[in-house]
Amino acid sequence: MSRIAARFDKLRKEGRKALIPFFTAGDPDRASCVPLMHALVAGGADVIELGVPFSDPMADGPVIQRSSERALLHGVSLHDVINWVAEFRKTDNETPVVLMGYANPVESMGLEAFAKVAKAAGVDGALVVDYPPEEAETLVGTLDRAGLDTVFLISPTTSDARLKQVAALGRGYLYYVSLKGVTGAANIDIADVSRRLEHIRTYTRLPVGVGFGIRDGKTAHAIAQVADAVVIGSRLVQEIEAAPADAAVKVRAFMADIRTAMDASKKK
């Protein structure tokens, strides 16, 4: 069983929901990536979505754009990010790591080469933001053969026909983007998310995570009532941006708050 499946399995048995933080590898600096990953786990993270910086992050709002720019100033490449996962694996062989980023760095490395080195480093899956299912068959095939999960996004505007497609191609878990717009946008409508998740679950048995617009323990708690996983990106990256020298301590504390709020919603 993959690390991702094993983790969701374990959580299900415990009646808990997954907490999935996102941050950009190499922000605020190169040395901080692996310590930040460990800090997130210590704070209660179940899966880490590790952002691969890209020069043109078209789907991201200003917070994640800036984090990507900071990482690129340090010359962070996809190779670096994969090497950091290998480093992380030396002391953590259980927490799943999903690389999240854009198509071009992956295509530049070559899909086969990417799958091979990522698997060898202990990466568990990839979410390539600008590979919708229509363009992702080769990626999914390649990652499948390497034993890596391809994670897909679903949005409020995803049609039923495409939900079917996503359900057929998606591996590991699905990521429901709860708002229109870019990452880091404003408020989340819990009732609406709940209705959408119910609908999505008629198409798939994969766990469904919810992200975009989750900013604090209160929203995380509410989302944990209806989703299998809570994804937090921009809000976490803000913590790193606000206190770069102190980032590991800050993100650990921030994660722990969210974790506590989520677990307070544990099913009886």
Partner: peptide
Amino acid sequence: GGVFVSETLISALE
């Protein structure tokens, strides 16, 4: 060519 965008843009393009 093709459609290499995030899921959030797909319905607008369709």
